[in-house]
Design a binder for these strands. Structure first.
Lengths: 205, 205
DNA sequence: TGTACATCAGTGAACGCGCGTTCACTGATGTAC
DNA sequence: TGTACATCAGTGAACGCGCGTTCACTGATGTAC
């Protein structure tokens, strides 16, 4: 911690970080402006130099989350190239890894109730994230014979839903309490079975 | 609305109903004891004749939700008999139907942050609900050759996760805004592809 | 290099609010005789 | 059938609390000359 005089130096980001910690620790409900300010070593009123209010601060936390999320997904996608299948599976793993590594961001993004259409910024970055997943799905979709190919947006939605469901139901609780399987295993096998259903993995592989 | 004297008559249930309405309308955060009391036409203090406090009231709402949920799932399961496949698919549809029809209960159960282990009652009824899904999965699992059969608890978890994900991501927003597919279609096709992956549906069906 | 001044980022006191909860109370209901 | 009394379900006033937000302010910083 650098010495701190009257001026903070980087209060804006310090507040976002504090908000993320609080959200992670106590849920989006538990987060309060005052506490975030206190944790950043500053009066509640100081927050208003940098944000319009409580909601605005959460939105910024979510925005940064989407930014990281989109990057992470893109990186996984690229790494899986040139195999469409490998790229797709990698994004699935990346989803869960993101939720685990950035729980505060994840909660701000998906559980805080802030709308993705709150600001153009937020809408843009969330669209970018969704775009990566849909691109991965579209690539993969090329390998399915056209007559039995579901829309790419549909199966990217399936995978997104399963990933989100695994996070919410099985990755959030005390380890091992909810289910005998790790979230990673659950998602890996789930996606595997699903892809087999699409004929993209050999039945006996 | 029956006439109301000094005594309410059925305040306990009236409070639960008010809580459900409020939760549905404003999320688990928006719900307050005082407002629920007001909506039931009663002083906030009266709540304490029937509940230990705010949390206790939410827990009761969740408990009633699990009760309905378990019944609904069981009914769907029974209706699908004697076909294990039909029974399983019916429970999937019932899941989504429940989330749609009882949004307040659903939120109280899965998004309010109350622990299922809060009381023995709550734990029991939630276990009953999960039991139905696992039974349906176990039945179905009989039709998979033993050497390539995943644990029943695992694929019931897969389906639960996908169902929950569909509800959270696609069934909660303004109709049609989030996705070009209806949640029902999404879940139906998703489960279909998944079951095909397990070899339980013919590849070209 | 030194000084005057504009700009900016924080303070701290105050606000009104609605919350959950408590308490002594009172009005209504039901039951024993 | 009537009366006394116990029980119960509500009232209403009060509480302390922490919240988000506002305001006039002041201390620190940077820049023009």
């Amino acid at each position: 911690m650098p010495k701190r005089g009257y001026h903070h130096g980087n209060l804006r980001q310090a507040l976002v970080d504090a908000a993320l910690m609080l959200i992670e620790a106590k849920g989006p409900t538990g987060f309060t402006l005052s506490e975030a300010a206190k944790q950043a070593g500053v009066t509640p009123a100081a927050v208003y130099r940098h944000f319009e209010g409580r909601e605005d601060l959460i939105a910024e936390a979510a925005r940064q989350g989407y930014e990281i999320f989109a990057d992470v997904m893109k990186y996984a996608y690229d790494k899986g190239q040139p195999s469409a299948l490998a790229a797709f599976e990698a994004t699935g793993r990346a989803y869960l890894a993101f939720a685990r590594k950035y729980p505060g961001h994840y909660i701000a993004m998906f559980e805080s109730g802030i709308s993705v259409n709150r600001t153009p910024d937020l809408a843009a970055v969330s669209a970018r994230a969704r775009g990566v997943l849909e691109k991965a799905a579209a690539d993969l979709s090329e390998h399915i014979s056209p007559d039995k190919r579901p829309p790419a947006a549909m199966f990217s939605a399936h995978i997104w839903a399963m990933s989100h469901g695994v996070v919410e139901l099985f990755a959030r609780t005390a380890p091992g309490s909810q289910s005998p399987f790790s979230p990673e295993d659950l998602l890996e096998t789930g996606i595997g079975i699903y892809l087999r259903g699409l004929g993209l993995i050999k039945p006996d592989d």
